[in-house]
Structures are given as C-alpha cells and as structure tokens.
Simulated scan of single mutants.
Amino acid sequence: MASLTRSTAPVQLGVQLAGRGAAAGARVRDALAGAGLTLRSSFTLRLLAEGPVGQQALIDLLGVDPSALVAVLNELEGLGLVSRQRDPADRRRHIVTMTAEGAGALRAVDQVLAQADDELFAALSPAERDQLARLLDKIADDCGDQ
C-alpha cells in the first residue's frame, strides 16, 4: 500500500517562486485596492512621478496594449490623478501628467505598499530583504525583464 506521507523531493525554485509570488501579488493587489488603485494604475503613477510622459512612451514602458493603457488613463483621469493634453509640438501625440492629487495618491500607495512589504517579509532581517531584492534584480536582468 502506498504511503501518504509528504515527499522529501525538493520543490523546484521556479515553482516555489511562482507560488510565493502569487500570494505576494494577491496581498499587494489587496493593499492597492484599499487605496482605490490597481497594480497597473499604480505602475502608471510611478512612471509619471518623474514628470510628464507621452502616451506612446507609457505604452512602451508598461508593455501593454494601447487599449489597456487608455482604460487605465481614463480611470486615473476620472479620479483626478492624471491629465492628458495634446502635445503642442505634435497634435497627434498626448502628454500625460500626474496632478497634485495623483502625487498624493502615490504617497498613499507608497505607504500601503511599505506596510504590505513589512507583513510579507516580516521573517527577514533588513539585510536579508536587501539580499532578496538584489537576487530578484539579478534574475530579472538575466531574463531580460525590467
């Protein structure tokens, strides 16, 4: 009769990372939802923190379909967090700018994400968190991700 005991075979790192990533992603999405934003809208605000960006550049930076970005910008604009204007140098282009309300929302996002990180990584020391960040960056660089 087969044993029902737990296998001692090692779990593949990719599988382990995917499982932990799904749990972390859910916690981050929940934290952002509490701030009234989605992951994509918070990424968009983060990109706009450096200053106005052309809509096409945002599409490229986020790696999304143009219609997906339009939906995010419509949402953010409806909340008063961003504004879009035609580029005076090229009327076919739109320039997206974060509003003062958007900057406030981004500060709130930073706070809820810091709290989520504290909960997610409570078992790690600050040095271990730094090491994990470096390792994840190394993996992302090797995979060609940004």
Rank of each mutant, 00 (worst) to 15 (best):
D145W: 14
T97Y: 09
A89V: 12
S3V: 11
A133Q: 11
A71K: 15
R129I: 13
G21K: 01
A18F: 07
A105L: 02
F121P: 00
G14V: 03
P126H: 00
V15L: 15
A49G: 08
V109Q: 01
R40N: 12
Q146M: 13
V15P: 08
K138E: 15
E128H: 06
L17N: 10
S125L: 05
V28A: 14
Q12A: 14
L81C: 05
L39S: 10
R91T: 12
P10F: 07
T8D: 15
V15H: 10
V109N: 02
Q131C: 13
D87V: 09
L79P: 02
R91C: 13
Q131V: 12
R6W: 15
E101A: 15
D117N: 12
G54L: 05
A105Q: 02
E75S: 09
A26S: 11
S42M: 01
G21A: 02
D117R: 05
R91W: 13
L4V: 11
G34E: 00
A57T: 07
R93H: 04
T97Q: 03
D60K: 06
L61H: 13
A22Y: 10
P52T: 06
G104K: 12
L13P: 05
T99Y: 02
A116K: 00
A105F: 03
P66N: 00
R27A: 13
P66E: 09
A105S: 06
S67P: 09
Q56Y: 11
I95C: 05
V53P: 01
L17M: 11
L120N: 02
E50W: 10
L13H: 08
V11M: 05
R86M: 08
G51I: 00
V11C: 06
A123L: 12
R129L: 12
L76N: 01
V28G: 04
S7V: 04
V28H: 00
G21I: 04
A26N: 11
L136T: 11
L37E: 06
E50S: 15
P52D: 07
D145H: 11
L13M: 09
D145S: 11
G104N: 13
A35H: 02
L13E: 09
L58Q: 03
G14D: 14
A2R: 13
P66V: 06
A23D: 08
G102K: 00
G51F: 03
V96C: 00
